[in-house]
Design a protein around this nucleic acid. Structure first.
Length: 151
DNA sequence: GCCAACGTTGGC
DNA sequence: GCCAACGTTGGC
């Protein structure tokens, strides 16, 4: 069992949006490293920190889990979508995704608070210049975040 | 809106 | 395959 942090812009898909659905396809990832995590490393049942990015309060906003293995992201074939990729074909899809099942909304755990915690000092999302929208989280970091969320 | 960081593109 | 130019991300 592995753990992940996954960024979503709440104006596009918030934790509330995700909770309103049985599961949500994590569409729109257009970075190879993030894609490879979904395609190669994620397993059904892996833990996910649902993170709100590019918003007033960038923060962990909920807990979710991986709910499917990887399959092609349909938005890459949709010319009307902002995620359209003209170089991708259904025969050899470039972008894959997994379904994510939101489990619960949490209090907002912001970056500043996370930075005050020594146990989280190596979290990739806290690194300067970190832009990767999906990052692995260690089991120790996961446990610490769960502890903080309960406070 | 600024800008640092970093990924991608394309000429050579 | 190098690397400069360019585009994007995302916190601030």
């Amino acid at each position: 069992m592995s753990y992940w942090l996954m960024k979503s812009e709440p104006e596009e898909v918030s934790i509330d949006d995700a909770l309103a659905m049985p599961a949500i396809p994590w569409f729109g990832v257009r970075n190879y490293q993030a894609r490879n995590f979904m395609r190669d490393a994620m397993r059904v049942g892996d833990g996910v920190l649902f993170y709100h990015s590019s918003c007033a309060e960038p923060s962990i906003a909920g807990v979710a889990e991986v709910a499917s293995t990887a399959y092609p992201d349909d938005t890459q074939f949709d010319s009307a979508s902002k995620y359209f990729d003209a170089k991708s074909t259904p025969e050899t899809p470039r972008w894959m995704l997994v379904d994510i099942k939101a489990l619960r909304k949490t209090r907002l755990l912001g970056l500043a608070e996370m930075r005050t915690c020594d146990a989280l000092s190596d979290m990739l999302v806290l690194k300067k210049g970190s832009r990767l929208s999906i990052t692995p989280v260690t089991s120790d970091e996961w446990a610490e975040v769960m502890r903080l969320l309960d406070q």
